[in-house]
Simulated scan of single mutants.
Amino acid sequence: MTTPYPVPSASEEPLGSLTRILALAEGDGTDSFLGDSLPHLSGRIYGGQVIAQGLLAAAATLPEAADEALEPRLPHSLHAYFMRGGDPKQPVVYEVERLHDGRSFSQRRTTALQAGRAILAMIASFQIDQEGSQAQVAAPSVPGPEELVSALEIFRTLDDPAAKFLGRTAPFDIRHVEGNIYLGPGAEVTNRQRLWLRSRGRIPAKASQTVHRALLTYVCDQVMLEPALRSQGLSWRSEGMSLATLDHAQWFHRDVDASDWLLFVQDSPTSQGGRAVARAEVFDSAGRLVSTIAQEGMIRMPTATSRGSGDWAVRFDV
């Protein structure tokens, strides 16, 4: 059996619930792991959770996992495809294939399965810390998080089961610069968005850099498609909307601190064929570019010839 990657549990809720489900259990064979799920308003497994768990499953098979004297290899990129929605009431099996271990880099393929069927396939690459030249784009000047309204404050003012659920269970504090689109479209139709986010609670000091990067991967799926929604004049409550993440690509450039305020600078360059592309540059509070992310998602609305599946309909039985 392969020992799961260590994820220390946070003592404060709801962050503690998240760290506990990221701590995978041993599966039935070598390089096989089991993961549980947090409830989600869509009634499906939240995509960011599957990617984060898959990343940690891959990390558990790296060379240093068997030899502590070796230098750690940190995730620097991942590419994932979602095949079908998952059932949060059933465990997820993560099967890892060891593709390559070189002097500096390692690559792993992770497949997430339920009932023997793949729900996600991902390849992740890891690298030891190495010296190199430094260059990056500058972080934009935006209002600081202390000047903006927290999504948690909005949820607490609403007499709505979905809002109460989010206010109670969201492990991250999110603050939009241009205003949120939780209840209705933005004031302006635009393909751009900026927001700050950080964890709600203290991440244990012994949490590794790999865990911090997995936490960023977890939360980013929550906001990645929002600039695409804004560009189409939509919101999370648009009636009849069907929405799903199709694929996810992410690069880690520098160390991440998920307890620090992180600035997302996002845009959506195109929407067509019921699909939309969205991008994000993520800066820390010191202005360092820590990650670049891209997603393509399915966004469908009812038309004159098609009602749409409305799979995004919010459930209140969570």
Score class of each variant (00 low, 15 high):
Met1Tyr: 05
Pro4Cys: 01
Pro8Tyr: 04
Ser9Thr: 13
Ser11Gly: 07
Ser11Tyr: 07
Pro14Ile: 04
Gly16Met: 04
Leu18Asn: 00
Arg20Pro: 09
Ile21Trp: 03
Ala25Tyr: 04
Thr30Tyr: 05
Asp31Trp: 07
Pro39Phe: 11
Leu41Ser: 14
Leu41Gln: 13
Ser42Thr: 13
Ile45Leu: 03
Val50Gln: 02
Leu56Ala: 04
Ala58Arg: 11
Ala58Thr: 15
Ala59Leu: 11
Ala60Val: 01
Ala66Asn: 12
Ala66Tyr: 12
Arg73Gly: 14
Arg73Ala: 07
Leu74Gln: 12
Leu78Pro: 13
Phe82Asn: 04
Met83Lys: 02
Arg84Leu: 12
Gly85Cys: 02
Val93Gly: 02
Glu95Leu: 09
Leu99Ile: 03
Arg103Leu: 01
Ser104Thr: 11
Ser106Trp: 13
Gln107Lys: 04
Gln107Asn: 12
Thr111Val: 07
Ala112Glu: 11
Leu113Met: 01
Leu113Asn: 05
Ala118Ile: 01
Ala118Arg: 09
Gly132Val: 14
Ser133Lys: 10
Ser133Met: 15
Gln134Val: 05
Gln134Tyr: 09
Ala139Pro: 08
Pro140Tyr: 01
Ser141Glu: 03
Pro143Thr: 10
Pro145Lys: 07
Glu147Tyr: 02
Glu153Gln: 14
Glu153Trp: 07
Ile154Phe: 05
Phe155His: 08
Asp160Ala: 00
Asp160Ser: 07
Leu166Cys: 10
Gly167Arg: 12
Thr169Phe: 07
Thr169Met: 02
Phe172Trp: 09
Val177Gln: 03
Glu178Ala: 01
Asn180Arg: 08
Tyr182Cys: 04
Pro185Phe: 02
Ala187Trp: 04
Asn191Lys: 02
Arg192Leu: 00
Gln193Glu: 04
Arg194Glu: 00
Leu197Met: 11
Gly201Asn: 05
Lys206Cys: 08
Ala207Ile: 08
Ala207His: 12
Ser208Tyr: 09
Gln209Leu: 14
His212Pro: 14
Leu215Trp: 00
Thr217Asp: 10
Tyr218Pro: 12
Tyr218Ala: 07
Val219Gly: 05
Val219Thr: 14
Met224Pro: 02
Ala228Gly: 00
Leu229Gly: 14
Arg230Lys: 11
Ser231Asn: 11
Ser235Phe: 03
Leu243Glu: 09
Thr245Ile: 06
His248Gly: 05
His248Cys: 09
His248Leu: 15
Ala249Ser: 14
Ala249Cys: 08
Ser259Asn: 02
Leu262Ser: 14
Leu263Gln: 11
Asp267Leu: 05
Pro269Met: 02
Gln272Pro: 10
Gly274Leu: 05
Arg275Pro: 15
Val277Met: 12
Val282Arg: 01
Val282Met: 00
Phe283Arg: 10
Asp284Gln: 02
Gly287Ile: 06
Arg288Ser: 07
Arg288His: 11
Ala294Glu: 02
Ala294Asn: 00
Ile299Leu: 15
Pro302Phe: 04
Thr303Ala: 01
Thr303Cys: 10
Thr305Ile: 04
Thr305Ala: 00
Ser309Ile: 03
Ser309Asn: 15
Ser309Gln: 10
Gly310Gln: 13
Asp311His: 14
Trp312Ile: 05
Val314Phe: 10
Val314Pro: 15
Arg315Cys: 07
